[in-house]
């Protein structure tokens, strides 16, 4: 039982990381009906930006300025940088193709993804780099009964949940959020309302990418590393989470992410890590067979 609960905790922490990235897939898909395949790599770039700030401000395991300030700067630079990167990708790679065949932006997205991975690998580092978390956040391990989690893992989980609630409020409680949803549902009708659709799309990319950047920071503080390939697998998992939750649906992406993390953890813990992904994708197929629109998605007929 203890092991089960421990694997559940592991899964929730990993799942909250999936969820943060899955939100980006779902936001962008919701607006443009396109898969931003490069989103996982935006997360990777965010992690590298955070690692870069930390490398500049931490020497010999000691922060040059107060650790809290370093972490704050990491957050600002990673979120801002990833956000601007997302906006740039949209502007350069996707906007010119907005009215093209649906396959065209997907292929461009794969190209952007490969470009980002290669760029970081060649210009930054082919090997994993260190995020000096020892100097930045307390390395406390929390114990509850027989269960343990590093403080940074709990931090990841809590901040991810807070961000998701904030995003949910932004999309469902603000005027701009309504405009985003209106654009997602009927782009031309949204322009009839005087909504500047290009701006809505840019803001969507910024928000989605900034969240991925934040996921990169949280990951760095949790596991103290960043490498150029880290966005690939995570991107696929996050995308899977978004599909399980119902792509385009924000709450679906959150639940889908947490669910996928837990599923993976339990499958690895109690069945086999060698076939872990097999079970995860089996779950995806099962969900899609029973509910093709995902757990929280709109029934497909509704889209007509």
């Amino acid at each position: 039982m203890g092991t089960f609960l421990q694997q559940l905790i592991n899964g929730l922490e990993l799942g909250s990381l999936y969820a943060l990235v899955a939100l980006g897939y779902t936001l962008i898909y919701g607006i443009l009906e396109m898969l931003n395949f490069a989103h996982g790599d935006v997360y990777m770039v965010g992690a590298f930006l955070a690692a870069g700030v930390a490398a500049l401000l931490v020497h010999n395991e000691l922060a040059v300025i107060p650790a809290g300030l370093v972490v704050g700067l990491m957050v600002v630079v990673a979120m801002g940088g990833a956000g601007l990167l997302g906006v740039g990708i949209e502007r350069v790679a996707y906007r010119p193709l907005r009215n093209a065949n649906r396959l065209a932006p997907l292929i461009t997205a794969i190209g952007v993804s490969l470009f980002l991975e290669s760029a970081v690998q060649v210009w930054v580092s082919p090997a994993p780099v260190l995020v000096p978390s020892n100097a930045l956040v307390p390395q406390t391990v929390l114990h509850l009964g027989g269960l343990t989690t590093p403080l940074t893992g709990l931090m990841l989980f809590v901040i991810a949940i807070v961000l998701m609630i904030a995003l949910d409020a932004f999309v469902f409680r603000t005027r701009f959020g309504s405009a985003m949803r209106a654009t997602a549902q009927d782009r031309e009708a949204a322009t009839f309302m005087g909504i500047d659709v290009d701006r809505v799309i840019l803001v969507t990319f910024f928000v989605a990418s900034a969240l991925a950047g934040m996921a990169g920071v949280l990951f760095g503080l949790w596991h103290a590393t960043a490498d150029f390939f880290m966005g690939y697998l995570l991107g696929i998992k996050a995308f899977t989470a978004a599909v399980i939750g119902g792509i385009g649906n924000i709450r679906g992406a959150m639940i889908g992410g947490l669910l996928l993390g837990v599923l993976e953890s339990l499958a690895g813990g109690f069945i086999s890590t060698q076939f872990q992904d097999t079970f995860v994708f089996l779950a995806l197929i099962t969900v899609l067979l029973i509910r093709p629109q995902g757990l929280f998605g709109q029934p497909l007929t509704d889209r007509a």
Binding site: T3, Q6, Q7, N10, G11, E13, L14, L17, G153, F219, H223, T225, D227, F229, M230, Y232, L233, L234, E264, S265, G268, G269, T273, Q274, Q276, D277
Partner: peptide
């Protein structure tokens, strides 16, 4: 006890618990 990690895996908590 045998476990596998896929290239690009960054979270190992499941295996560590095992």
């Amino acid at each position: 006890q045998r476990d596998s990690v896929k290239a690009g895996t960054t979270d190992f908590s499941t295996i560590i618990t095992k």
